[in-house]
Design a protein around this nucleic acid. Structure first.
Lengths: 353, 353
DNA sequence: CGAATTCTTGTAATCGATTACATCTACCGT
DNA sequence: ACGGTAGATGTAATCGATTACAAGAATTCG
C-alpha cells in the first residue's frame, strides 16, 4: 500500500527471486542458497544479512525451479478409486498428516475405474510431477504406449495387492482370514444358517472375503448354500445392501445371520429389513466389515471386523517416505505388510438357541 | 529389454528429454516443442517424424521445466479443515472431476485449525506451486511475516465467506435463511417448543444457523428460551449430538422438536435418545442440516435441509478455472454465489397436536 | 614468517522446456 | 525474372534455483 520501495520503479508486480534477495543482501545468489540450505556454512554476519533481506522482500524459493534442478518435486500422488465412499476419509487424513510432516505435498487423483484417467495419471507420473505414488485400492495406472510407470518412482499399494509385483510395497489386511473369523464368531453365537453379501465382483477383496466365508462354513461342517450368497453388489455401498434385502425376502427359509462384505452394505441391508418390520438382531443378526465411522452410531450399533485404516495409512506413508528418501538406486527393499483385523462386538449380533 | 539403442552407451537410466526426441527426429528442440503445442505450424512430414520419435522414446514433457518457463503449474490447492468428517467427500469428488477435466491437478491440504499448517500452505502458495486456491471452510492461510497470499493467485471460498474480501469468489448457502426455513417447517407441523443444537462456537456457519433459528422463533411469536439452546458442541460431529442429549434429559419440560445444526449432530442426538427409549419422531421430532450420505439411510431417515454440495463444488471449480485461465491482470471479476437449500422431508419429524 | 590448510564467497554451468528472433526456402504477383 | 511475402525451422535466451569449481581470505603450524 505504501510506496516505500523505489529500487525498481517499473517492475512492481513481478515476484521476488533469489536474485532480488542477493542484491539486497549484497551477496551472490549462491550465498543466499547456501544460507538457506546449509546455514552453518556461511558467516554469522552474512547469514543475518541474507535472512533480513529475505524477511524484507518476503522471498519464498520457487518450487518449479527447485524441482527442475533437484529432480524431485516433494510431492506424492495418492490414487483413490473415487466412488463417493467415505471409507477413505480417515485414510486420506492419515496420509496427508504423515506426508506433510515429512515435507511432501499430496496430489490426489480419482481413477474412477476409467482407463483414460489411469492414462492421465500415468502421464503425471512420467512427467516427473511426483516423487512417489500411493495406490489406494485398484489398479496401477499404465499408459497406452506400453510404457509402464518408470521404476525410479516408488509405488505402494493399499488395501489390495497385485500379485506378482515385488517392486511395490503393499499394506493390506488378511481379508480371507478376517472374514473367516467374522463368520466363526457368528457360528460361535449359535448361528448355522448364515448368508453372505459379497462386494462387487472382480475385486480381489470381495473374492477374498467370500473365500473366508466359505472357509469358515466348511470348517464348521456347514453347507455353503448358493442361495445364501447374494450376488449383484455393484459396490461397497448402501444400494448393494438394499438390493440384497430383496434376496432375503424372496427366500423361504431365512438365514439367522448375515455377513456383509462391508459396513455400508450391512447398513443398507439392515435399513431395508427394519423398514419391513424385521428386527435386528431379534430376527436376523448382521456382521459387517471395515468399522467405518457410522458403524458405531447406527441403531443397532454394528458388530464388525475393524480394519486399522489410520494405522495402515501411517505405515504406508512412512514407508513411501523412506523409499523416496533413499537413493533412486532401486536398492530400497519394498515391504509387504499385512495387518491384523479386530472383531468389534456391538449390538447387531445376538446368540441364538 | 532389447539392446537396440546404442547412441549413448553409458547413460541408460536417465529420463528422456526433448533433446533426445529432437535428435532422434533430426530436428531442433524448438520444432519438437512446436509440434506438440501448435501442430498446424509444422509440416506434415516433420510432425510425423516428431511424433514417431516421441512414441519410440516414450517421451513426456517434464512438468517442472514447463512450469518454470510458463510460470504456471496447472495445479490448484484445495484446503480442507480436515477433521475426519465425510461431509467433504462429495465436494472433493466434484472438485477433482472438474479440475482434472480442465487440465489441473489437485493438491490437498488439511489445515486442522492449526496456525503452523496455515503458514505451511501459505508458503506453498507463495512458492508458486499452485495456480489457484480453493478454501473449503475455514481461514485463508497467512504467513507469520505478514506477507499475505499474493494477489496474483486467485482464491475462492466454499461454505463460509470472510466478510470484507471482495478479492475472493465465494460459494455458499444462506445458512441463516435456510435454518429459519427448517424451523418454520417444524412450526408448520405444530411444534411450539423447539430446541436447537448449534455447531461449534466461533464458526460463522454455526452462528448464522443459530440466528436463523432465532429469527423463525421470533417471527412466529415463540419465545427464544436459552434453556433450549444447547451449547457445548465441539464440532459438526456425532459426539456433539450425544453431548446435547444430556441437556435434553436434564430438562424438565422437554421440547417436542429439535433443530440440529448438522446431520451428524442430529444423528448422534437421535442415537443417544433412542438408546434410552425415547422414540423418534414419536416423542421428539428432529431436523438436521446438510443432507449428508447417512441422513437417508438412518432409522428413522432424517428430515433435513440439503446443501447442494456437488453443485457448489462444480461451480466453485469452474469459476476458479475461469479465473486462472484469464490473464493475471487482476481484472477478472470474482463471484459471490449463494445457492438455495432444499428441505428434504423424510421420517424424523411428525406433526403434533 | 611463510607455506599449507581451512573457511567463505563468487562465477558460471546446469536442470528441460518454451519462444522471440533470425534465417532460409518456396511461392506469389507483376 | 525479381522483389516481396509467407511459411518452416533453427539458434539461443530465458525461467529461478542449485552446486561444482575457482578464487580469495583467514587461520594454523612448523
Amino acid at each position: 500500500m505504501r510506496k516505500s520501495e523505489p529500487p525498481e520503479p517499473e517492475a512492481a508486480a513481478r515476484s521476488v527471486t533469489i536474485q532480488d534477495v542477493a542484491r539486497r543482501a549484497g551477496v551472490s545468489t549462491a550465498t543466499v542458497s547456501r544460507a538457506l540450505a546449509l546455514p552453518e556454512r556461511v558467516t554469522e554476519a552474512t547469514r543475518a544479512a541474507v535472512f533480513s533481506a529475505i524477511r524484507e522482500t518476503g522471498y519464498t524459493p520457487n518450487a518449479a525451479a527447485r524441482s527442475l534442478r533437484a529432480k524431485s518435486t516433494k510431492m506424492v500422488l495418492v490414487l483413490l478409486p473415487g466412488i463417493g465412499n467415505s471409507f477413505f476419509t480417515p485414510v486420506l487424513n492419515a496420509l496427508e498428516e504423515v506426508f506433510t510432516e515429512g515435507g511432501y505435498g499430496v496430489l490426489i487423483g480419482y481413477t474412477r475405474q476409467s482407463r483414460s484417467r489411469e492414462t492421465h495419471y500415468a502421464r503425471v507420473i512420467r512427467a516427473g510431477q511426483v516423487d512417489g505414488v500411493l495406490v489406494v485400492t485398484g489398479n496401477v495406472p499404465r499408459d497406452e504406449e506400453f510404457v509402464s510407470v518408470p521404476d525410479t518412482v516408488p509405488v505402494s499399494l493399499m488395501f489390495s495387492e497385485i500379485p506378482g509385483t515385488p517392486q511395490f510395497s503393499v499394506f493390506d489386511v488378511d481379508n480371507r482370514g478376517a472374514s473367516a473369523e467374522a463368520v466363526r464368531y457368528l457360528i460361535s453365537q449359535g448361528h448355522r444358517r448364515i448368508a453372505h453379501i459379497p462386494g462387487a465382483e472382480g475385486g480381489l477383496e470381495a473374492s477374498e472375503r467370500l473365500g473366508g466365508y466359505c472357509d469358515a462354513m466348511r470348517e464348521a461342517g456347514l453347507p455353503v448354500d448358493p442361495a445364501l450368497i447374494w450376488r449383484g453388489a455393484s459396490n461397497f455401498d448402501f444400494a448393494s445392501g438394499e438390493r440384497a434385502a430383496r434376496d432375503y425376502f424372496a427366500l423361504d427359509e431365512k438365514p439367522t445371520a448375515v455377513f456383509a462384505a462391508a459396513d455400508e452394505i450391512a447398513l443398507g441391508f439392515m435399513r431395508a429389513l427394519k423398514n419391513r418390520g424385521v428386527g435386528i438382531p431379534a430376527d436376523v443378526s448382521v456382521i459387517g466389515f471395515d468399522d467405518t465411522e457410522y458403524a458405531v452410531h447406527y441403531d443397532p450399533a454394528l458388530t464388525t471386523m475393524r480394519q486399522p485404516r489410520n494405522e495402515m495409512g501411517r505405515l504406508a506413508a512412512t514407508d513411501l517416505l523412506r523409499r523416496m528418501a533413499t537413493g533412486r538406486d532401486g536398492t530400497v527393499p519394498t515391504l509387504k505388510v499385512r495387518l491384523a483385523c479386530e472383531l468389534v462386538v456391538r449390538e447387531s449380533v445376538r446368540a441364538v438357541e
